[in-house]
Design a binder for these strands. Structure first.
Lengths: 207, 207, 207, 207
DNA sequence: AATGAATGAGTCTTCATTCAT
DNA sequence: GATGAATGAAGACTCATTCAT
């Protein structure tokens, strides 16, 4: 399950190309050309194109969301601070690993039964549980209403973030922010996005 | 630009397969098998696989959103009613043409310059203008705050709806609604979804 | 065997395209597009693409070379005048029906047994006989040497004319005749060509 | 630019088939069947059918005509001996590489602009220069007339040789030489052909 | 451990031809 | 008599994968 440097290089190259052109739209030749490796390396290291895709998911998922779980169990932060922290880490995660999140979205669109699909299902379930734990804690201490629809809340967070990050150029144009540097613009957009999501959730379910 | 019955049949079959498996992941052979037609028909009618994809978009987009434009100019409805109506028609549209909306999402993920991309850009621009018009009307009569971030508002609506409709089975399982018929469940989910989006927007930006 | 106007139009269009791009390199679609007729017309009128090719040859050959035969039997002209006349009519024929002569050359390159090949063989035999008759007449009255190699003589005439007419632009450039009109240049080139061929033959075999 | 044995085998097989049936009339399937190789090898080695055609020309042209250039600059031979030598090497070259010369002729018939066409143009120019050099040398020492039309002279040499070598069977039949072995016949025909061309040129332009 | 050579299956597209009208 | 619709076969080319080295 551990990958050496060369394997990681292939994985991340493939992640990018699969994200941009889809699984079927990316040939092993494309990957090997972009990564500067031999065509036979993919089959050699991963067995097949399919298995390479699975390797990408395992590579990314292994170390993810552990922090979130710890935070949910944290006793110092207030529920709303936890939500804020969750939104923050989610938006940052998505914008840092944007290729991977494109992959997730693509995988979700092809609703097939596959090892990857099962893996993602379990991830989604875990995420729901984390949020559920926070929400229930908030309901217990009177911060949240009783009729919060947790999945919808998760969908709003995920969906809004997806949509915004994938439409960054439209967003920039609509707000006439072309004068900013790329970095400054991204920072500003993420700031507004986090605030916006937080407002959406807070106002909807605040008691 | 007009398509006969057989052409529409091919278009809708391709729309479904492209939505499920992607453009590159769907072969003309797959389409012709599923549609029960000869393999050569696709090239015969549309010229190429690429042109077939364009035909799908033109087929769907031609008659869309005209109602929304009319509604925005409507003088009887209040701004918030218009937003409600917009959410309603958007969610209904997306759930009725779910394959097509998967296609849009896929197209958005491959951020390439193409005739289709330009077409979608203009559609997005039009949608933004419609909402903008409603919001500004609401700001004028004091219904909305002044600092509404219209693009983010659009992204929340679109993103939440996408995410929910594509995760309908997860949603069903999380709420233990397996006892309902498919129709009843969909109706209930859409009801909750519309209400949720409306709350998100209303509470965030209501003055 | 008689062709109506529409059929002749198809024949001549096909002749041009076959000459330029070869038989296999020209599709029935190309022909019908260029001729402005329906795709099914070729099969309808001629049965098949192959049969259309045969029709082209029959169309052109039926009325050809009859004059040459008459001239050979003529009693007034001297043998060398007949040769001169032959060269003249051959060069003119080739430059007037240049597409057809390209076809002949192409057919000759594919040394296949076919109805067309047999037809051309008989034409070549007839041409050889005509020249043979003139030469023998010249040998009888002492104008020609006895050891004239008639086929080689024919090949020189045909080959030189072919080569020159197909390299007209090279010829023009080599002689810096770009200032002339196309018509004037062609006339001049044909004049030189005829004279050149005549000299080649006359000087070689004149007694 | 260097080709291994297998590539040369493919090149020469394709050369033969293209010569006999034309470029469009020869499928990659035909070539691979005749050469006893896998269909994908052509694309694998040469990239495309078109590139294979270019490879044929580069393969043949690279080492050609260098001898001729050296001979033209030779100080021992007399101009007429050089012409004789030129005719000899040209006829031999054409009969040894008859498939390739069919290809050249075919390429010339389709007067298209292509990398190959440019290549052939430069070859033709070089050949003309070589002959021109010899002729001018002959004019200087009084062997040739002043008004020699060099291009026409070249066309006679090339055209006669082409025409004769491609009509060898007709020639054999016309002279009743079926009793000779193929080798003996070819030797005899080439002997007569060279002499014939030499006479044509000599008598036309000898002072 | 790593790779260049090779291939059978599959890709999209075009072909000449047929047939119902 | 003439044609638009339709198709099976074949076209060139690319694919993921294997194997000998």
């Amino acid at each position: 399950m551990e990958h050496n440097d060369k394997q990681v290089h292939i994985i991340e190259t493939a992640e990018k190309l699969f994200a941009l052109h889809g699984f079927a739209g990316t040939s092993i030749r494309d990957i090997s050309r972009e990564a500067g490796i031999n065509i036979a390396m993919v089959s050699y290291y991963f067995g097949s194109k399919e298995k390479l895709m699975e390797a990408i998911f395992h590579h990314r998922i292994t170390h993810a969301w552990i922090a979130a779980e710890e935070m949910a169990d944290n006793n110092i932060l207030q529920p709303w601070q936890k939500v804020e922290e969750l939104i923050h880490s989610f938006v940052e995660g998505m914008s840092n690993k944007s290729y991977f999140h494109s992959l997730i979205l693509r995988q979700q669109l092809s609703n097939e039964m596959s090892p990857i699909a099962s893996l993602m299902d379990s991830v989604r379930e875990r995420n729901t549980n984390i949020i559920g734990k926070i929400i229930r804690e908030g309901q217990a201490n009177g911060d949240f209403k009783q009729d919060v629809d947790i999945p919808l809340l998760l969908f709003t967070m995920v969906g809004t973030a997806y949509q915004t990050l994938h439409s960054r150029e439209s967003y920039r144009k609509m707000h006439n922010l072309q004068h900013m540097t790329d970095e400054a613009f991204m920072a500003e957009m993420k700031r507004r996005l986090k605030q916006h999501i937080f407002f959406c959730l807070k106002q909807s379910y605040h008691k």
